[in-house]
Computed example of a mutant assay.
Amino acid sequence: MSMPMSKRMGAELIGTFWLVLGGCGSVVLAASFPIGIGLVGVSMAFGLTVLTMAFAIGHISGCHLNPAVSLGLVVGGRFPLKDLVPYVIAQVVGAILAAGVIYLIASGKAGFELSNGLASNGYGEHSPGQYSLGAGFVSEVVMTAMFILIIMGATDSRAPAGFAPIAIGLALTLIHLVSIPVTNTSVNPARSTGPALFVGGWALHQLWLFWVAPLIGAVIGGALYRGLFRTP
């Protein structure tokens, strides 16, 4: 990419901020409001954040917004390894800032308790559907691998031009529709880190899963696409 790294990092920070603010914010502020948006609304919110930012900053940074996406693209041969760490730093910082904004807004309502999770990801007793660690691991690996496959396919030079943001946004929506009950859906270590740092306790103790499983899934997805569908 011809853009300076500072501008690309800025775009990734802002884009990840928007993803966490819009996605996690919909969970904390709107999911169960008297006429709440529920699981479908939250799933759409996450998808819309990626869709909108893909159009806004895709031409600047590629709109990864996710350490797993950046790693998957490295493995898939679409992104240079030397740029991985700066992107991950920008993504994590953006996620933390967004979680802070959500906390500031949510704490303005009487009865708000940080212990409710701030949309943190979890397994076992902290899974929305009480799913086990094993179930959460499988869900996060498979969903992330499929997400990377879709991203690489939609952005392939052979794919129809201009439609990638729609495909990627809808893919993230579908992923959330399926896996919110299992782990509250991560597939994104930065998205998991922001809320966990504010909640502390159990959220930090379980955060390892939402780095390990998505990164494994990213490697699988990137390797599969590169091995199966790369142009000879």
Rank of each mutant, 00 (worst) to 15 (best):
S2T: 13
M3F: 11
M3C: 04
M5V: 14
S6D: 05
K7G: 01
G10L: 12
A11C: 09
I14T: 07
T16I: 05
V20L: 14
V20S: 02
L21W: 09
G22S: 01
G22D: 00
G25R: 06
L29M: 15
A31V: 03
P34D: 12
P34Q: 14
I35A: 14
G36T: 11
G36P: 05
G38I: 13
L39C: 12
L39H: 15
L39S: 11
V40H: 08
G41C: 04
V42M: 07
V42N: 05
S43D: 10
F46D: 02
L48V: 13
L48I: 15
T49K: 08
M53F: 10
H59T: 13
S61H: 05
L65Y: 13
P67Q: 01
P67L: 08
V69G: 00
S70W: 08
L73Y: 13
L73H: 11
G76S: 08
R78A: 15
R78C: 14
K82T: 14
K82M: 09
D83P: 06
L84W: 15
I89E: 02
A90Y: 11
V92F: 14
G94T: 05
A99Y: 02
V101Q: 04
Y103D: 10
I105G: 00
A106V: 02
S107G: 13
G111V: 06
F112Q: 09
L118I: 07
L118K: 00
A119P: 02
E125S: 13
S127V: 08
Q130N: 14
Q130W: 10
S132F: 05
L133A: 00
G134Q: 08
A135D: 11
G136K: 02
S139Y: 06
V141E: 01
M146G: 15
I148M: 11
L149I: 13
I151G: 03
I151K: 03
I151Q: 02
S157N: 14
R158Q: 13
A159F: 12
P160N: 10
G162N: 04
F163A: 12
A164Y: 01
A164E: 04
I168G: 01
I168M: 04
G169N: 08
G169M: 08
A171K: 03
L174E: 08
L174T: 14
I180V: 15
V182F: 11
N184K: 05
S186H: 03
N188E: 06
N188C: 00
N188T: 10
P189N: 07
A190S: 07
A190W: 06
R191D: 08
S192I: 05
V199A: 07
G201I: 08
H205I: 10
L209W: 04
P214Q: 07
L215V: 10
A218E: 00
V219G: 01
I220E: 05
G221W: 04
G221M: 00
G221S: 06
A223K: 04
Y225K: 03
Y225I: 03
L228G: 10
R230T: 11
T231N: 13
